[in-house]
Nucleic acid binder design. Structure first.
Length: 318
DNA sequence: AGTTGAAGGACCC
DNA sequence: CGCCAGGGTCCTTCATAT
């Protein structure tokens, strides 16, 4: 996000955390991960050329299998309300509009408005640190009743597009829109735009949408939309993006085409993939030098050698 | 010996 | 001044029991 002085934010977070129990615990965990990384490195060093080519064969076979079983016949749509809790509070109290707002308390905040994010304030940040970062930050206590109410409204809309929609939280859901597109012979892009518009009409709230052949990819795209990659990706793909798209309140469509999928994922950072968090990212980077999805495929043999069957398959699952 | 199930981590919102 | 959630899923690891 533009306008965030990352260094300053980091420094303040550090100053505020230093010496706390939480901080000590984090240090302990970090040390543990370091150790794990060392042991994986040692294991890797022991691998012979022969081992590697052996694993390479296994991996090639598996990738081929998975590639063959990829289902491109479905169209999945992922929606996520923009700064949901904060947006609801603003809707009910227009005085909060345009102000840096945090939903939560001094110990923990669960949502930050976009204005607050400019100061480095984030969800899952303790309130007292957020207040340090942004002294004029307005705190509103969480009120799940309200969010559930609005969530119901959005779900009513979802069910019109897919009665079996999958809600993963109050503000997030997956819809399979293959049938709708066919029935009404409209593109997924039109469905996405219409859905966003309907939700806005019904609730006064905006959401971001990603469309792709499967749920993982659909969600992946949503994240890119959210962090402002929209223009870049549209350019990259040469896909027209509706001009009314701004950073939150955006959408992105990935066509159901193998090459499109492969190109799309190839250069993107693994951290953006659902399920790969801070720790896994660090391990893959420091042990194998992997930071993009292409490198996952390139270093498949090593992955197979060092990690369990299950998680290796998991890393290849696109 | 393989299975299973509890406990603990990582991750997500 | 001190304050770092709570509820969920999925994966890995580790096996006795006074």
């Amino acid at each position: 996000m533009e306008g965030v002085d990352k260094e300053k934010v980091q420094r303040i977070i550090y100053e505020m955390s230093k010496g706390s129990k939480y901080f000590e615990n984090e240090k302990r965990k970090e040390a543990f991960i370091k150790q794990k990384i060392e042991s994986l490195r040692a294991q890797r060093a022991k691998l012979t050329e022969k081992d590697i080519s052996h694993f390479q064969m296994i991996v090639n076979k598996r990738i081929l299998e998975l590639d063959g079983s990829r289902d491109l016949s479905k169209i999945w749509l992922h929606t996520d309300m923009d700064a949901f809790y904060a947006a609801v509070e603003t809707l009910e109290n227009p005085l909060l509009k345009g102000k840096p707002l945090a939903v939560g308390g001094m110990s923990m905040i669960c949502t930050a408005s976009y204005e607050a994010r400019k100061y480095g304030v984030r969800a899952a940040m303790p309130g007292f640190i957020a207040r340090k970062l942004c002294p004029e930050l307005i705190f509103v206590p969480t009120n799940f009743g309200k969010y559930t109410y609005y969530s119901e409204k959005t779900r009513n809309v979802f069910s019109k597009y897919d009665p079996d929609y999958i809600a993963t939280s109050l503000d997030e859901a997956y819809l399979e829109i293959t049938e709708i597109c066919k029935q009404r012979s409209i593109s997924s892009e039109e469905v996405a735009a219409e859905l966003r518009n309907t939700i806005y009409q019904e609730t006064g709230l905006t959401c971001s949408v990603g469309v792709a052949p499967n749920r993982m990819l659909a969600k992946f795209e949503f994240q890119l939309v959210e962090i402002g990659y929209t223009d870049l990706i549209a350019l990259y793909w040469n896909i027209p993006v509706c001009s009314d798209i701004n950073k939150p309140n955006g959408q992105f469509i990935l066509p159901n085409d193998r090459d499109a999928v492969m190109t799309f994922i190839s250069s993107l950072p693994i951290r953006k993939v659902g399920g790969i968090g801070k720790v896994t990212e660090q391990i893959l980077r420091e042990v194998l030098g992997i930071s993009t999805c292409t490198e996952i495929l390139q270093k498949g043999a090593l992955l197979h050698a060092l990690f369990s069957h299950c998680s290796t398959g998991w890393y290849f699952r696109y």
